[in-house]
Amino acid sequence: MTSTDKDTEALSALMDGEAQELELRRALDAIDRAPALRSRWQRQHRVSAAIKGQRFADPSVDVSRGVREALEAKSRVNRNPVWSMAVAASVTLAVVMGGQQLMLQDTHIQPLVAVNELSGAVVPVSGAQPVQASLGVRSLPVENRQVMPTPSSSANIAAVYERLARDRYMRLNGRHATVAAQSHPAPYISYVRIPEPQPEE
């Protein structure tokens, strides 16, 4: 039995749901190498339908090429680096905006700066109690420390971040919309729900 015969036999077994995974791969590879096998697959399905007494409206209908071209074009768009960049930019933007929102929510909490009365630095940690870094000195209770508001203008920083984020959002949003419009192949078609006809099988 030649290699071509083995490929054709694998295709025949695949038709009957009797092909193993390895044979399926073999059949698909063989079809890539020999397009005649593709025609054979289609022809044998028609013959099979005819043996069962089924009849198609028009056996000359062949949309396979159009379908494949449309799907390959879509696949190319998805692999386009501009598209990938737009998606990555959107994700980055979402993260930045999310972080910004969290910062704005936290502005009502005044950051604390502890002034150490003893030796050793006191490190302010957002959302936690001050931590004293000291050597051999008992750490101070927080209540004993002198706490004063941060002199830095956190509100101004937040505003600057927000403006930067907005600018970036506007810039990326325009690019994203352009890429999306170019890559979306089908216009929106409104969906209607109507009682289903019964399938043939």
């Binding site: 079809i31 399905h45 089924q54 696949s75």
Partner: peptide, 24 residues
């Protein structure tokens, strides 16, 4: 898993019946 060749075989197998349905 993105194998267009496999989908192509499904198209070849069913396009006649689907075209018959659409022609209704």
């Amino acid at each position: 898993r993105g194998d267009l060749r496999a989908f192509d075989l499904l198209v070849l197998k069913y396009q006649g019946r689907i075209a018959a349905l659409v022609s209704r």
